[in-house]
Computed example of a mutant assay.
Amino acid sequence: MFLVNGISATTVSAQDRGLTLGDGLFTTLYLKNHQPTLWPYHVARLREGCARLKLPLPDVDRLYEQCCQLAAGYDEACGKIIITRGAGGRGYSPQGCDTPTIIVSAHPYPIHYHDWQFSGIKLEVAEQRLGCQPMLAGLKTLNRLEQVLLKNELDERSIPEAIVLDWQDHVVEAVTANLFWRKGEQIFTPDLKLAGVCGVMRAFVIQQLHSWQYEVTSVSTGLPALLDADEVWITNALMGVVPVTGIQDVKYQDHRFVQRLQNALAALA
């Protein structure tokens, strides 16, 4: 089900800059108990993204109401909020584009994530690399062609997920998730100043660990540091916190922090 500018519809203008230029952003939500979870984190993401792309921030209370409206038809679902700059002319200039397009939708939940949460997932390393673009790093813009090509690689290799590096051989993220690892009592996550997406579940995990007196260090590092970890996990808004059981030939059997984070998330939901 889709709401386009608050009206039930499945189409937008052929001149919409989200279509013609990828000019916009989105956030993906876990809809549970007929409402979006981690809502304050999504609002913070939308606020930052709109500010950096110089888009007007929609009425977040109205967005929340629309998410609840669509969630009413599901026990759990995948929600999505898309904000584009709206319809415009042929060129790049955003001048005159004063009316953004707001699309809110709900979709069936990918139930395999429940299996991942319980049993974990083994990762490979993607062959394709992410480009570095500090102007857009951290944002979830509508231009997701890198992820489309990476997901196609997963399909062709018949693997569920993979670690993605940038062109400097730094670990950035998984194809559809953020990444954390623990060595002893130290916890790390990739620095996303040049590439990658700052996910809402990533923000939740960092804040939760901070409340337990654990600091998360953002680092630019290669694959060897990850392979030397004692515990690894991936996160996104839909999958929550998923333990990584192995990367290539390296296995991880200690998932104590994952279990604590999963319990904290369940209590919040």
Rank of each mutant, 00 (worst) to 15 (best):
A72P: 00
L53T: 02
Y64N: 14
R52V: 00
Y74P: 04
A77C: 09
L46K: 09
G91Q: 11
A77W: 02
C50T: 12
Y64I: 00
H42T: 04
I82V: 15
Q69W: 07
C78M: 14
G49D: 07
E48V: 05
A77V: 06
G89P: 06
L55E: 07
R52Y: 07
V43F: 01
Q69L: 13
E65K: 15
Q69T: 15
V43T: 12
L55Y: 06
D75T: 14
G49L: 10
H42N: 03
C68W: 04
D59Y: 01
D59K: 09
W39N: 07
G49M: 10
D75R: 15
K80F: 00
S93R: 14
R62L: 14
P40A: 05
R45E: 00
A44K: 14
G86W: 05
A44M: 06
V60Y: 01
Y74W: 15
Q69K: 14
Q66P: 05
L53M: 12
C67P: 06
C50A: 11
Y64P: 02
L70Y: 06
C67T: 06
P58D: 06
Y64S: 10
Q69D: 08
S93I: 02
T84F: 09
K54G: 03
R62P: 00
H42C: 02
R47T: 15
A51L: 13
Q66N: 07
R90F: 07
P40R: 11
D75P: 08
G79E: 09
L38N: 11
Y92S: 07
L55A: 10
H42A: 02
Y74F: 15
G86H: 07
Y74M: 01
L38Q: 12
Y92F: 14
G49S: 13
A77K: 05
A77L: 06
K54E: 14
L70V: 05
V43N: 02
S93K: 13
A72R: 14
L53C: 09
C50P: 11
V43P: 03
Q66W: 13
L57N: 04
A87Q: 13
I82S: 03
Q66H: 12
Q69F: 11
L46V: 04
A77E: 02
R90P: 03
L38E: 04
G73R: 12
H42E: 00
Y92D: 05
D59T: 05
L38H: 12
V60K: 01
L46P: 08
D61W: 04
P56L: 10
R45C: 07
R45W: 03
C67E: 13
W39M: 03
K80D: 00
D75S: 14
C67S: 12
L57C: 02
R90K: 13
A44L: 07
G49C: 07
A77M: 03
V60P: 00
G73T: 08
V60E: 11
L63N: 12
I81T: 02
